[in-house]
Design a protein around this nucleic acid. Structure first.
Lengths: 112, 112
DNA sequence: GTGAAGTACCTTGACAGGCGAGGTACTTCA
DNA sequence: TGAAGTACCTCGCCTGTCAAGGTACTTCAC
Protein backbone atom coordinates (compact mmCIF):
# COMPACT_ATOMS: atom_id res chain seq x y z
CA UNK A 1 0.00 0.00 0.00
CA UNK A 2 1.28 3.42 -0.80
CA UNK A 3 0.30 6.55 1.07
CA UNK A 4 -1.01 9.37 -1.05
CA UNK A 5 0.48 12.80 -0.69
CA UNK A 6 -2.63 14.41 0.63
CA UNK A 7 -2.35 12.30 3.73
CA UNK A 8 0.79 14.05 4.80
CA UNK A 9 -0.14 17.41 3.40
CA UNK A 10 0.37 19.98 6.07
CA UNK A 11 2.84 17.73 7.81
CA UNK A 12 5.79 17.99 5.45
CA UNK A 13 7.12 21.05 7.23
CA UNK A 14 6.97 19.18 10.52
CA UNK A 15 8.87 16.24 9.07
CA UNK A 16 11.60 18.44 7.67
CA UNK A 17 11.98 20.56 10.78
CA UNK A 18 12.03 17.55 13.05
CA UNK A 19 14.82 16.10 10.97
CA UNK A 20 16.83 19.32 11.09
CA UNK A 21 16.46 19.39 14.84
CA UNK A 22 18.92 16.53 14.87
CA UNK A 23 21.46 18.43 12.83
CA UNK A 24 22.01 20.04 9.46
CA UNK A 25 21.05 18.07 6.41
CA UNK A 26 20.34 18.40 2.74
CA UNK A 27 17.50 17.62 0.42
CA UNK A 28 18.61 14.36 -1.03
CA UNK A 29 19.43 12.90 2.36
CA UNK A 30 16.17 13.96 3.93
CA UNK A 31 14.31 12.39 1.08
CA UNK A 32 16.22 9.16 1.54
CA UNK A 33 15.55 9.23 5.27
CA UNK A 34 11.82 9.57 4.76
CA UNK A 35 11.78 6.75 2.30
CA UNK A 36 13.93 4.53 4.52
CA UNK A 37 12.19 5.22 7.82
CA UNK A 38 8.84 4.56 6.22
CA UNK A 39 10.06 1.46 4.41
CA UNK A 40 9.24 3.11 1.14
CA UNK A 41 5.61 3.70 1.98
CA UNK A 42 5.91 7.47 2.23
CA UNK A 43 7.66 9.30 -0.48
CA UNK A 44 8.01 13.02 -0.60
CA UNK A 45 8.54 13.95 -4.19
CA UNK A 46 11.49 16.15 -4.96
CA UNK A 47 9.33 18.96 -6.22
CA UNK A 48 7.44 18.88 -2.95
CA UNK A 49 10.58 18.84 -0.89
CA UNK A 50 12.26 21.76 -2.58
CA UNK A 51 9.06 23.78 -2.49
CA UNK A 52 8.94 23.12 1.24
CA UNK A 53 12.54 24.23 1.71
CA UNK A 54 11.83 27.44 -0.12
CA UNK A 55 8.73 28.06 1.96
CA UNK A 56 10.52 27.34 5.22
CA UNK A 57 13.41 29.58 4.31
CA UNK A 58 11.07 32.40 3.36
CA UNK A 59 9.34 32.17 6.72
CA UNK A 60 12.65 32.17 8.52
CA UNK A 61 12.42 28.65 9.87
CA UNK A 62 15.56 27.42 8.19
CA UNK A 63 18.73 28.82 6.63
CA UNK A 64 20.81 27.28 3.90
CA UNK A 65 24.43 27.20 2.82
CA UNK A 66 26.38 25.38 0.16
CA UNK A 67 28.46 22.56 1.51
CA UNK A 68 32.04 22.25 0.32
CA UNK A 69 31.85 19.16 -1.78
CA UNK A 70 35.35 18.24 -2.85
CA UNK A 71 33.92 15.42 -4.88
CA UNK A 72 30.42 14.59 -6.05
CA UNK A 73 27.48 16.86 -6.66
CA UNK A 74 27.29 20.03 -4.62
CA UNK A 75 24.91 19.99 -1.67
CA UNK A 76 22.83 22.72 -0.18
CA UNK A 77 22.65 22.22 3.55
CA UNK A 78 19.88 23.48 5.75
CA UNK A 79 20.04 24.61 9.37
CA UNK A 80 17.08 25.11 11.63
CA UNK A 81 16.75 28.58 13.15
CA UNK A 82 15.45 29.43 16.63
CA UNK A 83 12.27 30.51 14.90
CA UNK A 84 12.18 27.11 13.25
CA UNK A 85 12.57 25.32 16.57
CA UNK A 86 9.58 27.18 17.88
CA UNK A 87 7.53 26.32 14.83
CA UNK A 88 8.63 22.73 15.03
CA UNK A 89 7.49 22.47 18.63
CA UNK A 90 4.14 23.86 17.65
CA UNK A 91 3.76 21.47 14.74
CA UNK A 92 4.72 18.49 16.89
CA UNK A 93 2.08 19.54 19.39
CA UNK A 94 -0.44 19.90 16.59
CA UNK A 95 0.34 16.46 15.28
CA UNK A 96 -0.25 14.97 18.71
CA UNK A 97 -3.60 16.69 18.89
CA UNK A 98 -4.52 15.74 15.36
CA UNK A 99 -3.86 12.11 16.18
CA UNK A 100 -6.04 12.17 19.25
CA UNK A 101 -8.92 13.87 17.53
CA UNK A 102 -8.73 11.76 14.41
CA UNK A 103 -8.76 8.60 16.47
CA UNK A 104 -11.87 9.83 18.21
CA UNK A 105 -13.55 10.74 14.95
CA UNK A 106 -12.71 7.47 13.29
CA UNK A 107 -13.93 5.28 16.12
CA UNK A 108 -16.55 3.11 14.50
CA UNK A 109 -18.02 1.88 17.77
CA UNK A 110 -20.17 3.79 20.22
CA UNK A 111 -21.66 7.03 19.14
CA UNK A 112 -23.78 9.11 21.49
CA UNK B 1 -5.12 26.05 19.47
CA UNK B 2 -7.09 25.44 16.35
CA UNK B 3 -6.27 22.79 13.79
CA UNK B 4 -6.02 23.99 10.24
CA UNK B 5 -7.91 22.13 7.59
CA UNK B 6 -4.82 21.08 5.77
CA UNK B 7 -3.90 18.88 8.70
CA UNK B 8 -6.87 16.66 8.07
CA UNK B 9 -6.74 17.03 4.36
CA UNK B 10 -7.12 13.64 2.83
CA UNK B 11 -8.84 12.34 5.92
CA UNK B 12 -12.22 14.00 5.57
CA UNK B 13 -13.57 11.13 3.52
CA UNK B 14 -12.49 8.72 6.21
CA UNK B 15 -14.20 10.79 8.89
CA UNK B 16 -17.44 10.95 6.96
CA UNK B 17 -17.46 7.29 6.02
CA UNK B 18 -16.61 6.19 9.54
CA UNK B 19 -19.53 8.20 10.81
CA UNK B 20 -21.92 6.71 8.27
CA UNK B 21 -20.80 3.26 9.28
CA UNK B 22 -22.79 3.85 12.47
CA UNK B 23 -25.93 4.72 10.57
CA UNK B 24 -27.38 7.24 8.15
CA UNK B 25 -26.79 10.88 8.87
CA UNK B 26 -26.90 14.29 7.25
CA UNK B 27 -24.48 17.12 6.69
CA UNK B 28 -25.40 19.40 9.49
CA UNK B 29 -25.27 16.64 12.05
CA UNK B 30 -21.94 15.29 10.88
CA UNK B 31 -20.50 18.74 11.09
CA UNK B 32 -21.78 19.12 14.61
CA UNK B 33 -20.38 15.74 15.58
CA UNK B 34 -16.93 16.64 14.34
CA UNK B 35 -17.01 19.90 16.19
CA UNK B 36 -18.31 18.27 19.37
CA UNK B 37 -16.04 15.24 19.40
CA UNK B 38 -13.04 17.46 18.84
CA UNK B 39 -14.12 20.01 21.42
CA UNK B 40 -14.27 22.62 18.71
CA UNK B 41 -10.66 22.16 17.67
CA UNK B 42 -11.44 20.59 14.31
CA UNK B 43 -13.92 22.25 12.12
CA UNK B 44 -14.82 21.06 8.67
CA UNK B 45 -16.20 24.00 6.80
CA UNK B 46 -19.56 23.50 5.14
CA UNK B 47 -18.17 24.02 1.68
CA UNK B 48 -15.62 21.32 2.35
CA UNK B 49 -18.20 18.96 3.71
CA UNK B 50 -20.61 19.25 0.84
CA UNK B 51 -17.80 18.96 -1.66
CA UNK B 52 -16.82 15.72 0.07
CA UNK B 53 -20.38 14.40 -0.06
CA UNK B 54 -20.53 15.10 -3.75
CA UNK B 55 -17.21 13.41 -4.33
CA UNK B 56 -18.17 10.36 -2.29
CA UNK B 57 -21.47 10.04 -4.04
CA UNK B 58 -19.82 10.29 -7.44
CA UNK B 59 -17.42 7.51 -6.53
CA UNK B 60 -20.27 5.35 -5.31
CA UNK B 61 -19.24 5.32 -1.67
CA UNK B 62 -22.46 6.87 -0.40
CA UNK B 63 -26.05 7.35 -1.55
CA UNK B 64 -28.40 10.14 -0.53
CA UNK B 65 -32.11 10.63 -0.04
CA UNK B 66 -34.29 13.43 1.22
CA UNK B 67 -35.62 12.85 4.69
CA UNK B 68 -39.28 13.50 5.32
CA UNK B 69 -39.08 16.55 7.49
CA UNK B 70 -42.55 17.31 8.77
CA UNK B 71 -41.18 20.35 10.49
CA UNK B 72 -37.89 22.22 10.14
CA UNK B 73 -35.54 22.48 7.26
CA UNK B 74 -35.38 19.54 4.88
CA UNK B 75 -32.47 17.19 5.37
CA UNK B 76 -30.53 15.18 2.87
CA UNK B 77 -29.52 11.90 4.44
CA UNK B 78 -26.57 9.82 3.40
CA UNK B 79 -26.15 6.05 3.47
CA UNK B 80 -22.90 4.21 3.09
CA UNK B 81 -22.77 1.67 0.27
CA UNK B 82 -20.93 -1.67 0.28
CA UNK B 83 -18.36 0.04 -1.90
CA UNK B 84 -18.12 2.74 0.74
CA UNK B 85 -17.54 0.21 3.50
CA UNK B 86 -14.65 -1.19 1.56
CA UNK B 87 -13.17 2.21 1.00
CA UNK B 88 -13.68 3.09 4.62
CA UNK B 89 -11.79 0.02 5.74
CA UNK B 90 -8.96 0.92 3.46
CA UNK B 91 -8.85 4.51 4.70
CA UNK B 92 -8.87 3.40 8.32
CA UNK B 93 -5.97 1.12 7.57
CA UNK B 94 -4.18 3.96 5.85
CA UNK B 95 -4.70 6.22 8.82
CA UNK B 96 -3.17 3.65 11.12
CA UNK B 97 -0.19 3.40 8.87
CA UNK B 98 0.13 7.13 8.48
CA UNK B 99 0.21 7.51 12.24
CA UNK B 100 2.96 4.96 12.67
CA UNK B 101 5.12 6.41 9.96
CA UNK B 102 4.58 10.00 11.01
CA UNK B 103 5.53 9.15 14.57
CA UNK B 104 8.69 7.57 13.34
CA UNK B 105 9.53 10.52 11.13
CA UNK B 106 8.83 13.07 13.83
CA UNK B 107 10.92 11.40 16.51
CA UNK B 108 13.43 14.01 17.48
CA UNK B 109 15.68 11.61 19.34
CA UNK B 110 17.96 8.99 17.87
CA UNK B 111 18.78 9.08 14.24
CA UNK B 112 21.02 6.49 12.70
C1' DG C 1 -45.52 40.68 13.95
C1' DT C 2 -40.81 41.24 13.46
C1' DG C 3 -36.30 40.21 13.77
C1' DA C 4 -32.57 37.39 15.46
C1' DA C 5 -30.81 32.87 15.93
C1' DG C 6 -30.87 28.24 14.85
C1' DT C 7 -31.45 24.44 11.48
C1' DA C 8 -30.35 22.95 6.99
C1' DC C 9 -28.96 23.05 2.35
C1' DC C 10 -25.95 24.70 -1.75
C1' DT C 11 -22.42 27.16 -5.20
C1' DT C 12 -18.61 29.96 -6.87
C1' DG C 13 -14.00 31.31 -7.19
C1' DA C 14 -9.56 31.94 -5.04
C1' DC C 15 -5.67 29.77 -3.02
C1' DA C 16 -2.07 26.62 -1.61
C1' DG C 17 0.38 22.39 -1.49
C1' DG C 18 1.72 18.12 -3.89
C1' DC C 19 3.62 16.29 -7.87
C1' DG C 20 4.51 14.83 -12.90
C1' DA C 21 7.56 16.04 -16.12
C1' DG C 22 11.28 18.09 -17.43
C1' DG C 23 15.96 19.95 -16.92
C1' DT C 24 21.24 20.54 -15.27
C1' DA C 25 25.77 18.75 -13.66
C1' DC C 26 28.97 15.81 -11.63
C1' DT C 27 31.07 10.95 -10.50
C1' DT C 28 31.70 6.05 -10.58
C1' DC C 29 32.01 1.74 -12.62
C1' DA C 30 31.08 -1.89 -15.85
C1' DT D 1 30.65 5.09 -23.67
C1' DG D 2 26.78 5.03 -21.26
C1' DA D 3 23.97 3.74 -17.38
C1' DA D 4 23.14 4.60 -12.67
C1' DG D 5 23.72 7.19 -8.71
C1' DT D 6 24.13 11.71 -6.38
C1' DA D 7 22.33 16.24 -6.12
C1' DC D 8 20.03 20.28 -7.35
C1' DC D 9 16.01 23.06 -9.50
C1' DT D 10 11.48 24.91 -12.06
C1' DC D 11 6.97 25.05 -14.47
C1' DG D 12 2.31 24.14 -14.68
C1' DC D 13 -1.50 21.13 -13.55
C1' DC D 14 -4.60 19.07 -10.20
C1' DT D 15 -7.19 18.66 -6.14
C1' DG D 16 -9.03 19.74 -1.62
C1' DT D 17 -10.10 23.55 1.53
C1' DC D 18 -12.54 27.53 2.51
C1' DA D 19 -14.32 32.50 2.49
C1' DA D 20 -18.16 34.46 0.95
C1' DG D 21 -22.30 34.46 -0.64
C1' DG D 22 -27.03 32.64 -1.18
C1' DT D 23 -31.86 30.10 -0.06
C1' DA D 24 -35.64 28.55 3.05
C1' DC D 25 -37.87 27.16 7.07
C1' DT D 26 -38.89 27.43 12.42
C1' DT D 27 -38.78 29.08 17.06
C1' DC D 28 -38.78 32.39 20.50
C1' DA D 29 -38.13 36.78 22.68
C1' DC D 30 -39.48 41.44 22.58
Amino acid sequence: MSIAGDLIRGHTDAIILARLLRGDSYGYEINKMISTLSSGRFELKEATLYTAFKRLEETGCIRSYWGDSGAGARRRYYTITPEGRLTCGKLLEEWKETKEIMDKLLETEEWK
